[in-house]
Design a protein around this nucleic acid. Structure first.
Lengths: 341, 341
DNA sequence: TTGTACGCGTTATCAA
DNA sequence: TTGATAACGCGTACAA
């Protein structure tokens, strides 16, 4: 027995002493090992209860060489997309008895590297990256210290398991829909700062533009639009343009909602003067007026699949990294129909 | 040196050997102790780099008797209120170099107790409870094993630090506003299942009802309405009533948004036929049409303050538990004006 | 200023 | 079926 900060610390040897047994036997009882007599089991159980004993997790981790904890890196949890992604990850993690560490990179390279170091110090057994801030070459070395899974983001250079969507197609799909609805001057809002995901979506956007013989303008491509507020800013910027787009394809429903709210306030009619498409199909897509045409991602499934892949890596069930592609789907609502011109 | 699963494990003694020093000296260099010659510092730094050494976190934790990790318990992170709360907590935690463990109770008593046990096994140094599922008497014993902070929820019986809002007043404020706007048949949506918070808000609701000589009906009090979908259900229920309320006071903006969307679909005019008030003032409150009158809570500040209080407890800076009350504020928008009758 | 020796609490191995 | 022993990797009291 022992004291620290006024709190008593009961250890396995205390239990052993009280039960008149060795620590080894107590440990065996606690861990349900075979070959322990019922008698001793009972004596241990009693002592454990009497002393209010709990095994020290740090000691177990040191001894066991694993910590049953996963780091989940994402930019910001207040972005509902990532909240739902985490929810998917958490479901699978909880089922497997794994803890999750919150790792918000806040779009900072430094923070991402800091969290990757958790792997080196063995604070976590593995990492799920739901976003990538650094170049892959700077991340790669960390993969030597434990499994890293990419989810949501996709990186060709990375030789690790990945769960992702065809973002090029997503960008193409949304843009094409706008064009076929009759819009011809189409703006694009990039979700995150220079992420591969945004770039891919943008490629799809340009693909559609070109396929239909339209053209884009530099000022129609908005960078760093990630939330509701920045969406409002986009609408204000559009209002101030001489050469206005008549539709916007957006990287998130939040941004789209911000655009719709502010555009209406500024006198635009949606969808007549400005068509809007979102991404994700989150609850807010039903709330906007007009309701939001959007591209549904199976968010929770992405997270769940990523976690399951990670668990397989723990169990050496994967010969080599696995790439999983999940489908996306256009959800047609009112925000992108019938342009005026 | 050593191998596990094919990965080499470098330990402090390896560094010591390479630098021609004792592990103790290496440890001192690593932890910036005074009285180490520049010469050895350099030699250690070199060896560390050459061997790619990283201290093992579990060993440090075992030795140091603390883990620099906090458990944050909340029902569900996909509820934006809790996402923002966590954001506040995370800001303060990151500043203090503390890690956060995701603990979603999913409204289950069992899960909450499971997470509280992290304190006993010393997997976390402290716990922030952003919701309470169990009776306080069942939680109390855990407080012997480390600091527990209540935030958002308030519990009179609990002798621990708490950060909260005057929910009775919140309930009163919203209800009174509806009444003074001319509504006289007011329904109420309880946020969480039987939480103290919901009950307090309900008391405020009843206070206002009585003060103005109105009356409520049992069927006008909706239980377990926590998200957008359940809000839609509430609207459907109202539509099916013979004796319909003409206003609803709601425990969250999500629920309110669901009510507005579905009520409109069912032919109600908002606010003329049905006034709606939300809670939190989240982005979605600006998105609904009509925009949502709501009661603003300083969400992030609640979280931040809770974390700061926890840190003070770690440093023994608190003589006794501290109760912090934060203000709430009614934000007037369009969803609760001008009833027809 | 540096090194030796020990303890943090647990569990696996080996011998009985 | 049980117990003694060692090792997980680190930090620090104590001695030098």
């Amino acid at each position: 027995m022992n004291k620290t900060g006024g709190r008593e610390i009961v250890k396995i040897s205390d239990v052993a002493k009280m039960a008149g047994l060795s620590p080894a036997t107590v440990s065996r009882v606690l861990n349900n090992h075979p070959y322990v007599s019922e008698d001793k089991k009972k004596r241990v159980a009693e002592a454990v209860k009497k002393l209010n004993y709990f095994p020290n997790s740090s000691a177990q981790k040191l001894r066991g060489q694993k910590v049953d904890t996963i780091a989940v890196c994402m930019p910001l949890l207040t972005n509902p997309f990532f909240a739902y992604l985490l929810e998917g990850i958490d479901q699978a993690a909880t089922d497997a008895g794994l803890q999750l560490l919150v790792c918000q990179t806040r779009y900072e390279k430094k923070k991402e590297l800091y969290y990757l170091n958790l792997l080196k110090s063995k604070q976590v057994d593995g990492i799920i990256l739901a976003s990538i801030e650094n170049q892959w070459e700077d991340i790669e070395e960390y993969t030597k210290h434990g499994p890293v899974i990419l989810c949501n983001e996709h990186c060709r250079a990375a030789n690790v398991s990945q769960v992702y969507l065809d973002q090029v197609y997503g960008g193409y799909l949304g843009t094409r829909y706008l064009i076929e609805s009759g819009y011809n001057r189409i703006a694009y809002c990039r979700g995150e700062y220079a992420s591969g995901l945004s770039l891919e979506r943008e490629r799809g956007y340009r693909l559609a533009i070109e396929e239909y013989g339209l053209s884009s303008r530099e000022e129609w491509v908005f960078r760093n639009s990630t939330d509701f507020q920045s969406g409002k800013q986009v609408a204000r910027n559009i209002a101030n343009m001489k050469d206005k787009p008549n539709a916007v394809f957006t990287g998130s429903d939040q941004v789209a909602a911000g655009i719709i709210v502010e555009a209406k306030r500024l006198g635009f009619r949606v969808p007549e003067d400005l068509g809007v498409i979102g991404f994700d199909d989150q609850p807010v897509a039903e709330v906007t007026v007009p309701s939001l045409t959007t591209i549904r991602q199976p968010v929770q499934e992405i997270g769940k699949t990523a976690m399951e892949l990670l668990i397989k890596e723990f169990n050496d069930e994967l010969e080599q990294p696995k790439l999983v592609t999940l489908p996306l789907q256009l959800i047609e609502r009112a925000s992108a129909k019938q342009p005026t011109n």
